[in-house]
Design a binder for these strands. Structure first.
Length: 604
RNA sequence: GGGCCGCUAGCUCAGCUGGUAGAGCAACGCCCUUUUAAGGCGUGGGUCGAUGGUUCGAACCCAUCGCGGCUCACCA
């Protein structure tokens, strides 16, 4: 990209080099940081030498002196450079641009307005910035560019860095808490031959040497439980998982998942662990058990509320599923009736989910009711417990009520944040469940699980009763940075690539036209060719190009355009232009002269 | 994938019922040794997301496409 700003900075770069100054020197070691300096000097210590480095954010220059605001990792500090102190070097100081990175040393003083400032005795450019910084007052607000160019976003929007500091704090807190409980952090394969542990579509890749397809993991679950089998009784993995699904404010194709497994525990143990983890994070990160998220207050005081799924459906959807004796059809009918009622009152209610086929399963309907009518009402934090066995292929059944599994999900602000269960360790039952999943996959369910024989084999070796837990870290971070979008918790969220603006074959033609500026010129060139021939037109173009002022260019062009419009038949010019463009689109390497000749031959 | 909204200078944004593209910041030149988004005077900078169409004339109207945001669906 070529802009005046960029060009002038490239020019400055050149002139620095001509003066024998390296604009990208190899090292400079700062000894002081802005925030520390401001703290130490706040009582005006007698005399303090400091050595700092950072990015020039603002420049306020006078004739023989100037101020710059410098930003380093800890904050900002003002520096003052004067001809008196810097001598020859002041000419370099004067030319500093916002965005440059400099190293400076000097003595602290207070300005007339009272700001602690470094009076620079010596400084050097550490990295010359070629691209200008976004606007100093409004910063960068364009969401697209903030995600695509996170580096620029981080430079100018301080709160972004704070968000990621909070993210780091949360992750550190989790590690510290689990490590303190003697959990072992492990790393299991990201590239898996059989993706498992969740109902989701995986990304597929290929290993050249082994000549086999591999999948990016959708969860580490099955590997972690193999470790439990192996006798590692308390393990966790805090890592990225990948799901080939839509992108939204709540979904990124790769996200960070904490999974914890503990032998001789169960879903109740995991529930208490979850409460404790989240409660401590709240206290450590926001200094309080109460936080505010998107204008609503949430309390992470233990214990969190808990409710069975059946009760939640009764309370929030007004449907008592125990009365249906697993009759899917009549439950479905009442569900749709409920939806219709709500729709009458409020247009926002979504349409009926597509469960209305013949062999509809009772528990699938329950699940739908929960998702459609209950989930978003769960402000929480609240644990929803006892999910249908039907929808939980890796969880252990409740011995009292085998249609349910010992499982909970933690909801906050209508979103699922954690999922845990007593792990199914019966290899025969597990194999049956897998087989059901395989059948579902065969009949078109992309998210159904694969058969994992080796995992069944692991269970056949004997896995102790175990509790397992998964927590979505990105969503948790959303709560604590008070952001409605998961993208604000991910440094480089996935974005669609920008397509090139023009097809390759048009490039030469477009370039040639661009050389003589804009649309008006295209018309002018064509008309001139018609009237004056190639050589005369070439002259006109050269004349136009020689004018440095854009205004002068326009005047010349306008004169030509006006003469076109005065002519009868002038309106067919654009038809001709279209014809020309079509013809030329097949041409490959045209220089300007050939381009003009070609146009002439087409017109005549 | 559907719906709604957006895309104008490096950045933040104006641009009326279609009539030769604007401001502030940034840049460039000059002045200025205590500024705080410094100030003053002057100058340059645009494929108005792209491509077609309507029109004497399009940033503006229409169509298609691209990218983004929100939202619904999908999905945890």
């Amino acid at each position: 990209m070529s802009t005046p700003e960029r060009n002038s900075r490239l020019q400055k770069l050149k002139s620095l080099r001509e003066k024998g100054i390296n604009p990208y020197p190899n090292r400079f070691t700062p000894e002081d940081y802005s925030a520390d300096i401001l703290e130490k000097f706040k009582d005006d210590a007698p005399e303090m030498n400091v050595k700092i480095a950072g990015r020039v954010m603002l420049v306020r220059n006078f004739g023989k002196a100037g101020f710059c605001t410098i930003k380093d990792s800890k904050g900002t500090i003002q520096v003052y450079g004067s001809k008196e102190e810097l001598g020859e070097n002041f000419n370099v100081f004067k030319k500093l641009d916002a965005g440059d990175i400099i190293g400076a040393s000097g003595i602290l003083f207070r300005t007339q307005k009272g700001e602690i400032t470094v009076n620079v005795k010596d400084f050097q450019i550490l990295a010359k910035a070629i691209m200008p910084l976004p606007e100093k007052f409004h910063g960068l607000t364009d969401t697209e560019m903030r995600y695509r160019q996170r580096y620029t976003d981080l430079i100018v929007n301080d709160e972004i860095k704070d968000s990621f500091l909070i993210r780091a704090q949360i992750i550190r807190s989790i590690r510290e808490q689990l490590n303190a409980k003697d959990f072992i952090e492990v790393e299991t394969p990201v590239l898996q031959q059989i993706p498992g542990g969740a109902n989701a579509r995986p990304f597929e890749t290929y290993h050249n040497a082994l000549k086999i397809p591999l999948f990016l993991r959708i969860a580490p679950e099955l590997y972690l439980k193999r470790l439990i089998v192996g006798g590692m009784e308390k393990v966790y993995e805090l890592s990225r998982v990948f799901r080939n699904e839509g992108i939204s404010t709540r979904h990124n194709p790769e996200f960070t998942l904490l999974e914890v497994y503990q032998a001789y525990s169960d879903f109740n143990g995991m529930l208490e662990l979850t409460e404790e983890l989240v409660n401590n994070i709240a206290k450590q990160v926001s200094g309080s058990e109460e936080i505010e998220y998107q204008g609503k207050k949430y309390s992470f005081k233990c214990p969190f509320k808990r409710m069975t799924l059946t009760d939640a459906v009764k309370e929030y959807a007004g449907i008592d599923i125990t009365k249906y004796k697993e009759d899917a059809q009549s439950l479905l009918k009442d569900f749709h009736k409920k939806l219709a009622e709500l729709k009458d009152k409020n247009d926002d209610v979504e349409d009926k989910p597509e469960t209305a086929n013949d062999n509809v399963n009772f528990w699938k309907v329950v699940n739908d009711i929960f998702e459609v009518l209950v989930e978003d009402k769960l402000e929480g934090p609240i644990f929803i417990t006892h999910y249908p066995s039907e929808t939980s292929a890796l969880a252990k059944q409740d011995p009292e009520a085998p249609e349910y599994v010992e499982r909970f999900e933690l909801f906050i602000s209508g979103r699922e944040h954690a999922n845990a269960y007593s792990e199914l360790n019966d290899p025969v039952k597990q194999k049956e469940n897998f087989e059901k999943q395989v059948k579902a996959k065969a009949s078109g369910d992309d998210e159904a699980m694969y058969m994992d024989e080796d995992y069944v084999n692991a269970l056949e070796m004997g896995m102790p009763p175990t509790g397992g837990l998964g927590i979505g870290i990105d969503r948790l971070v959303m709560m604590f940075i008070d952001s409605p979008s998961i993208r604000d918790t991910i440094l480089f969220p996935q974005m669609k690539p920008k397509k090139p603006m023009q097809p390759e074959k048009w490039k030469n033609v477009i370039d040639a036209i661009n050389k003589v500026s804009n649309k008006f010129t295209e018309l002018a060139v064509i008309q001139s060719l018609k009237q004056n021939g190639v050589e005369a037109t070439q002259e006109v173009i050269d004349e136009i190009m020689d004018k440095t002022s854009k205004k002068e260019k326009y005047n010349l062009i306008n004169t030509l355009v006006t003469s076109i419009l005065e002519e009868p038949g002038g309106s067919t010019i654009s038809d001709k232009l279209n014809k020309v463009m079509k013809e030329l689109s097949s041409e490959q390497d045209l220089n300007k002269t050939d381009f003009l000749k070609k146009i002439k031959s087409i017109i005549e």
